[in-house]
Computed example of a mutant assay.
Amino acid sequence: MGGLTYIDFLAKFGIGGAHPGGFSLTKNMLLQEKITQNSYILDAGCGTGQTSAYLYEQYKANVFGLELNPIMIEKAQNRFQDRQLPIQLVQGSIEQIPFKDETFDFVLSESVLAFVNKPKALKELFRVLKKGGRFLANEMTINKKLTSQEETEIKEFYAVDSLLLEEDWRKILKETGFHDTKLSMHPLDFVNGNTGQEFNFSANFEPELFGILNQHGNILVKYHDILSHRIITCTK
C-alpha cells in the first residue's frame, strides 16, 4: 500500500467528525460543560478544525488548535480563514505540547490518544490544564481482551501501540493525576446517525486510500462487538 496509513486516509479525505459518534456526539459532550467566552480551550489533535470552529462560533471562547499532520493543518487554516475565526493554530504533537503549564480551562481530544504514547500525552495534557480544569475525550476502547493475533491485526492497521479496556483507561488517568473520572459507552449504532461528517478532499489523493477505507470498514464489521469507544471526562 506504499506505506500509506489510516491517518493519511483521514488527512487526504479531509474527514471532519471521523471519530465514533461523529460531530453530534462532540456537541453533546460540550453541552455538559460550563464553557464560556472566558474559557481557554485546547483542541488537541484538531484535525481539519471542525470542532475548533464550532467551539468559537458557539461559545466565542478562546480556542487553540494543535495538530501535527501538515495536510490537516492546511485544511484547518483554510477553514478558519474562510470563516474569519480568530483561532490560534499551532503545529505540534500532544506528546510535547508547545504551551506553558496551566494555560487551559478545557482540553479536548477526539480519537487522538489512540495514535500516540498515551502516558506521555496524558502527562502533557494534564500539565497544560489549569487546576480544576477539565479534560474531555472520545477515545477507542476494547470491550474485552483480544487474542494476540486479533490485537496485532488492529494495532498494525491503525498504527497504534496499545488497545485499552475501560479499566486500563481508568488506571492510566488516575496515575496521571486526574480525578472525578467518568467513562461512558455509547452504542455503536450512534455512529450511523453521523450527520456531522464532512469531506474536504485533497486535490492529489492516491487511489490506494480507497483500499484503506475498505479495510477500515472490514475491521469495524469483524470486531463490532470488541472495538468500541468511550466518552471520558475528568478534572485536574
Results as ranks from 00 to 15, higher is better:
R170T: 14
Q197G: 12
F157D: 10
E198L: 15
T147F: 08
K123S: 04
F99T: 02
N69P: 03
S111K: 00
V112A: 02
E102N: 15
I154E: 15
L68S: 06
F99W: 12
I73N: 10
V160S: 15
T5S: 07
Q81C: 15
E110K: 07
G47H: 11
S184Q: 12
G47V: 01
N192D: 12
I154Q: 14
F23A: 09
I212T: 02
L146E: 08
Q32Y: 14
I212F: 00
K131R: 09
T176A: 02
G196E: 04
F64W: 06
P20H: 08
T36I: 09
E33Q: 14
T233F: 04
R127P: 05
T5Q: 06
D101L: 11
L25F: 09
F190K: 04
R170N: 09
R83Q: 15
D101W: 06
M29S: 05
N143G: 10
F80T: 09
N214H: 04
F126I: 01
L129Y: 14
G49E: 04
L10S: 07
H216F: 00
G17L: 01
L25T: 11
I94S: 09
D8R: 09
P70L: 08
D8F: 02
I231C: 08
A121S: 02
H216M: 00
L220F: 02
E198H: 07
G21D: 09
H19Y: 12
A44V: 14
K60H: 10
D101Y: 12
F126S: 08
E67C: 02
S202E: 02
